[in-house]
């Protein structure tokens, strides 16, 4: 959980929010958009050749757009902590490229801590701020390098895990996802009762909506299921917070 206070703005934030920093973040964001455009065009053309209907591709795109709106707004909420500490441009760049709040905030903290500061402290120097920027930048390249050089070899590892058994692949994939999300879930659940309520209500809402969508054959319901489950889970979390609070 990320707690932060809004304190009077330190002087380095003038530099951090300057026009030059906005300009310096543009190239890498454009590179991300370039890759997305290249891949999208290719997937659309090759997908049709593979027998995917235009309608399925459109459904995929539409679902991507709709499903991204809610989480993007959620990221925006967490981004405020970054804006308050490393400024708007770097916050925008780090959350559009490579990072997540869960990585960038600790990385920035580790940067300023080289000078004995903690994020949000008064009197953080420009040098300490620059160190935070370097920490986020260099730390983030790990994922870029592993994905750049390792992606083409991952099929080998995956095949080893499933021993080349075709029917096993969907099970192994789903099991890996369930394992990863179980880990995210338990991390959130140990944070408090409201978080646990959000998980449970979000999950149950999703189950209900998907069941309804399947049994009545309502396609659009699936596209909105995640966004709806998220909002219902949010309200549940707030309701628990204001009524019973947290028991752990």
């Amino acid at each position: 959980m990320i707690g932060y206070e809004l304190v009077p703005l330190p002087a380095y934030l003038d530099i951090a929010n300057s026009r030059w920093l906005w300009l310096s973040t543009l190239p890498v964001v454009l590179a991300v958009l370039l890759q997305a455009t290249l891949f999208l065009r290719r997937a659309w053309n090759d997908g049709k050749e593979m027998g995917l209907s235009e309608q399925k591709l459109k459904t995929g795109f539409k679902t991507g757009v709709i499903s991204a709106i809610g989480p993007s707004i959620a990221v925006l909420a967490g981004m405020l902590a970054l804006i308050a500490t490393v400024g708007g441009p770097v916050a925008w760049m780090r959350l559009t490229v490579i990072g997540s709040v869960a990585f960038e905030l600790p990385a920035a903290e580790l940067g300023v801590s080289q000078f004995g500061y903690s994020l949000g402290d008064e009197g953080i120097t420009e040098t300490a701020y620059a160190t935070a920027v370097w920490a986020m930048t260099l730390g983030g390249t790990g994922w870029l390098l592993v994905s750049a050089f390792g992606t083409r070899h991952m099929e080998t590892v995956r095949t080893k895990i499933s021993n080349g058994n075709e029917k096993l692949l969907p099970i192994v994939s789903a099991a890996a996802m369930l394992g990863a999300f179980a880990y995210f879930l338990t991390g959130e659940a140990t944070a408090g009762t409201p978080e646990t309520g959000s998980i449970a209500v979000g999950g149950l809402t999703m189950l209900g909506l998907l069941h309804l969508a399947d049994s009545r054959d309502i396609q659009w319901l699936k596209e909105w299921a995640l966004g709806t489950a998220m909002l219902v889970g949010l309200v549940a979390g707030v309701a628990i917070q204001v009524t019973v609070g947290s028991w752990w």
Binding site: F181, A189, S198, G202, L226, L234
Partner: peptide, 10 residues
């Protein structure tokens, strides 16, 4: 957490 719960349920 609501997103995590929903995806896990899915």
């Amino acid at each position: 957490p609501a997103v995590f719960g929903a995806i896990f349920a899915q």
